[in-house]
Simulated scan of single mutants.
Amino acid sequence: MHKIYIAIYTCFIVLLAACSKNSERAALPNGSISIQLNANKDTIEMPVSVAKDSTVVISLKAALNGTASASDHWVNFAVDSTKIGDYRARYGAAVLLPRNAYLFYKSMTRLPAGASLSDSAQLNFILQTKLEGYTTYVLPIVIQSVDGTVDGAATSQVLYLVFKTGKPVSISKVGWTIAGFSSVNGTFVATNVLDDNNTTTYWTSNIAQKMPQWVAINFNKDITFSAVNYYLPTALAYPSNGGYPTSILIETSMNGTAWENKGTFAGKIANNMQTLNTGLITARYLRFTVLESVKYASTYDAIFISGIALVP
């Protein structure tokens, strides 16, 4: 019986040694793994529409220099935001792509035995409507590690994913301030029309006052635009509760004192918003005046505006 135990133990040791040998990876030379690129370029550029959100899938592969791999290896891709300065120094002005605009769905990929190219890593580009128009965004990609080791097989190569946005749906509100307003109801302040939340925050005029009611915006710079968008909050349950404009006056100014009439528009709301086509205008101030409205709760002249934006 003792001899049987010895034989079983010996077989186990031999099997364990064989498995260990099979799991060993052939070492890769230093600097032999790089990101696969065409024509030795270090940039991939793509035009981006900011009119709507969509998921754009970007595939990345690692390449092994020389012969095919003798065993499986694991390559980890990553974003290195510190490299944005190098891009600017070489190619000019650019903005680092914000963290909420991409998702590394699959950052780790396998370089199979017998191959010189890895499987595809996957980066998803998302939330394009949150980006600014006419802007160059850059996302620097590096190989962070090979088989868990940071230094060694991976080169110091950087791939710059370059996203160039086109015409924006609306003009950025950065720097805008409220120049004045006719009235306010409680905590539903006029600054809510500038917060880029067009659904749940809003300005409400005083329910004890009659129309007209207005809010004036200071852009704090000259802006050229072709239309004005305004939005109703979802809580208003348009058109059930009333509280929305039926006649709107748009005025602009260069100094906040002398105002020019840019048109009176009938309320034609669809999907909780309306576009008022003013024609091409350059101004520093805008005054949005509700001349007439549907009474809120069939009783009050108050209006509810959740956002005001400019169309390029």
Results as ranks from 00 to 15, higher is better:
G166N: 03
V162F: 09
E132P: 07
W176M: 14
T149S: 13
A153T: 00
V150A: 10
I171R: 08
Q128I: 05
V174H: 12
L159A: 06
V150Q: 07
I126V: 05
V162A: 11
S170L: 15
T155F: 02
G133A: 09
F163L: 10
V146C: 06
Y160V: 03
D119Y: 12
L139V: 02
K167T: 09
D147L: 12
D119M: 11
L127D: 14
T155M: 07
Q144G: 09
G175F: 00
F125D: 01
L139C: 09
V174S: 15
V174A: 14
S120T: 11
Y160G: 02
Q144Y: 10
T155G: 01
I143R: 00
F125E: 07
Q144V: 12
L131A: 10
V162D: 01
V146G: 00
V142P: 01
F163V: 00
G166Q: 05
A154Q: 03
V174K: 15
Q157R: 01
V142I: 15
L123I: 08
A153Y: 05
V146M: 04
A153N: 00
A121V: 10
S156V: 07
Y137A: 01
V158A: 04
K164N: 08
V142F: 06
Y160W: 02
E132I: 10
D119Q: 14
Q144W: 10
T155R: 04
G133P: 01
T165A: 09
G166W: 03
K167C: 14
V169W: 15
G148Q: 06
G133S: 09
P140Q: 05
P168T: 00
Q144T: 11
Y160E: 02
I126L: 00
K130C: 10
T136R: 15
L131E: 02
S118R: 11
K173D: 01
D151G: 15
L159M: 08
T129A: 08
Y134A: 15
Y134M: 13
I126D: 00
Q122W: 10
T149F: 14
N124P: 13
T136P: 12
K173P: 03
A154E: 03
Q128F: 09
S118M: 05
T165Y: 04
G148W: 07
S172K: 12
G133F: 09
S170W: 12
D151I: 14
A121C: 09
G166F: 07
D151C: 14
V158M: 08
Q122T: 11
F125Y: 13
V174C: 13
